[in-house]
């Protein structure tokens, strides 16, 4: 693979919830190792867009190509697609009946059929990477929000995905815990992970993102570098939004 290979290609994606037209023809491409931030006012379809890309929401029409394969085709095993895409949620969604290490081991053992010992070894390495090697046997309820989110990131990484999705990963966190989660994400970006991040963390986006997609009412109204969007944007909705969050 060379660096400019396309990882995700979205063509004219539409999504309806009953009569509500949430995505009105979104098209974009994401290259390998690119970090793409998705921004926009609430209700603009950012989360829905991300959730359509691994079919947690079923798109109403359009095409989605992951590593060149049309994942909306009928012969596609979506579970195999999802093993290539790690997802991190706003509310962490750790499994409360399992310890941190069990949360991480579960998918490799169930889906990839990796032996317990190997999965544990890899899980501990991942916990170390997110700075929680001492919390392996803690249950989610014994961890702080920031720690839970870092375990959730490790859980997603355990499947060795090619792509990582982050759906407002810091929105449910107390301010003093946001930094520790963003640090982990920054490191992943440096290591060349392809990432799509729904977030309004300006500092993180300015520093780590290669591109910003600006979504308004189910359409991408702007697509450019952080410098372009933050400093040189002429678009009315973008300026309006930025004036509110800065």
């Amino acid at each position: 693979m060379n660096d400019s290979e396309t990882m995700i290609e979205v063509v004219d994606l539409h999504k309806y919830f009953k009569d509500l037209h949430v995505l009105k023809g979104v098209s974009t491409t994401v290259k390998q190792s690119e970090v793409v931030a998705v921004m926009g006012p609430s209700g603009s379809g950012k989360s829905t867009f991300l959730r359509c890309l691994n079919r947690l929401e079923e798109p109403s029409s359009g095409h989605i190509y992951i590593e060149g394969v049309d994942i909306l085709a009928p012969y596609i095993d979506i579970n195999r697609v999802r093993t290539e895409i790690g997802m991190v949620f706003q509310s962490f969604n750790l499994f409360p009946h399992l310890t941190a290490i069990e949360n991480i081991k579960l998918a490799p053992m169930c889906v990839r059929k990796i032996a317990d010992k190997d999965a544990a070894e890899r899980g501990l390495a991942l916990l170390d990477k997110v700075g929680l090697s001492d919390k392996a046997d803690a249950y989610p309820e014994q961890l702080s929000g920031g720690q839970q989110q870092r375990v959730a990131i490790a859980r997603a990484l355990a499947m060795q995905p090619q792509i990582m999705f982050f759906d407002e990963p810091t929105s449910a966190l107390d301010p003093e815990m946001i930094g520790e989660v963003l640090d982990v994400m920054r490191n992943m970006a440096k290591e060349g992970m392809t990432m799509m991040v729904v977030s309004h963390e300006m500092g993180f986006i300015k520093e780590a993102a290669d591109r910003i997609l600006f979504l308004v009412d189910g359409l991408i109204v702007e697509d450019g570098t952080p410098d372009h969007i933050f400093n040189r944007s002429k678009h009315k909705r973008t300026l309006e939004f930025l004036s509110k969050i800065i």
Binding site: N54, L56, N79, V81, G86, F95, P96, A107, V111, A152
Partner: peptide, 25 residues
């Protein structure tokens, strides 16, 4: 429902999601 989404996004099949995530809780 977040539990179901987390399990499915990890690539767990429907049956594995029910037996490993939903029923134990």
């Amino acid at each position: 429902s977040g539990q179901l989404e987390a399990a499915r996004s990890l690539g767990l099949s429907r049956w594995k999601t029910i037996s490993k995530i939903i029923l134990p809780q």
